[in-house]
Deep mutational scan, measured.
Amino acid sequence: TRVETATETAWISLVTALHLVLGLSAVLGLLLLRWQFPAHYRRLRHALW
């Protein structure tokens, strides 16, 4: 049971790290898009909202 718990903890930390990385890359990508294509971003936002 001790090994299982350790594996579970490792998986949880791995998944958390993955989610953090994905979230950060998504935010960075959005910022980059907004910085590179302001007109396109505004049009996209206008279409979405």
Rank of each mutant, 00 (worst) to 15 (best):
T16A: 14
T5R: 01
Y41D: 03
L20K: 00
A47P: 03
P38I: 11
E8V: 04
L14W: 15
Q36W: 08
L22Q: 01
F37W: 13
R45W: 11
A6S: 11
R43F: 07
W11S: 12
I12N: 03
G23M: 15
V3K: 01
H19M: 15
T16V: 15
L14Y: 08
L32V: 10
T1E: 08
E8T: 05
R2S: 14
W11C: 09
A6Y: 05
G29P: 04
I12Q: 15
T16K: 06
R42V: 08
A17I: 10
V27I: 14
R43W: 10
Q36H: 06
S13K: 14
L44P: 01
A10H: 09
S13L: 10
V15R: 12
T9D: 15
H46P: 03
V27Y: 06
H40Q: 15
L33S: 02
F37L: 12
L32W: 14
A6C: 07
R45D: 01
W49H: 04
G23Y: 02
W11N: 14
W11D: 07
R34N: 02
V27N: 02
W11A: 14
R42Q: 12
H19Y: 15
A10I: 13
G23R: 01
H46E: 10
A26V: 11
W11T: 08
A47L: 05
G29C: 12
L44E: 00
L48G: 02
L14N: 07
A26F: 15
A6M: 08
L24S: 06
R43T: 08
L31A: 09
L31Y: 10
Y41A: 14
R45H: 05
G29R: 00
W49I: 05
R45S: 07
E4C: 03
P38M: 10
W11M: 06
V21C: 07
L32K: 02
R43V: 06
W35L: 05
E4G: 04
W35D: 03
T7P: 14
P38C: 10
L20S: 07
L44K: 01
G23V: 15
A10Y: 14
R42E: 08
T5I: 02
P38Q: 15
T7S: 09
G23I: 15
A47S: 05
H40W: 13
V27D: 00
H40R: 10
R45N: 04
L31N: 01
L20D: 01
L28S: 11
V15L: 04
T9I: 13
T16G: 08
G29I: 12
R34G: 13
L44A: 04
G29Y: 01
W49P: 02
T9F: 11
E4I: 08
R34Y: 07
T16C: 10
E4N: 06
L30A: 12
E8R: 08
W49N: 09
S25T: 10
V15K: 15
T7I: 11
L48Q: 01
L48Y: 03
Q36F: 11
V21D: 02
L24Q: 01
R45I: 12
R34M: 15
L30E: 00
A6F: 04
R34H: 03
A47M: 06
L18R: 04
H19C: 15
R2A: 09
A39T: 14
L48K: 04
H19A: 15
E4D: 06
R43D: 04
L18F: 09
L44V: 08
R43M: 13
L31I: 12
L32G: 04
T7Y: 04
L20C: 10
H46W: 03
L32A: 11
L31W: 13
W11P: 08
L33F: 12
E8W: 06
R43P: 02
Q36E: 04
E4T: 06
T16M: 07
H46D: 06
A10Q: 15
G23L: 14
E4Q: 05
L33N: 00
A39M: 09
L18E: 02
R2D: 11
S25E: 01
R42Y: 13
H46N: 11
F37P: 01
I12T: 09
Q36R: 12
R45P: 02
T7M: 08
L33G: 02
R43Q: 08
L48R: 02
Y41H: 05
H40F: 08
G29H: 00
L30K: 02
A39G: 12
S13W: 15
I12F: 11
H46F: 06
T16W: 09
T7Q: 13
T1N: 04
H19T: 15
T7W: 09
V21S: 10
Q36K: 12
L22C: 11
E8F: 07
E8S: 11
L18P: 02
A17M: 08
A10C: 14
R43Y: 07
R2V: 07
A10S: 14
A10V: 11
L44C: 04
L28F: 11
A10R: 13
T5M: 03
S25G: 13
L28I: 11
L31G: 05
A47Q: 04
A17K: 03
F37T: 03
L24C: 07
H19D: 03
V27R: 00
L20P: 02
S13Q: 08
R42C: 08
L33E: 00
A39D: 14
T1W: 07
S13M: 05
E8H: 06
A17S: 06
H40P: 10
I12W: 04
W49E: 03
L30Q: 01
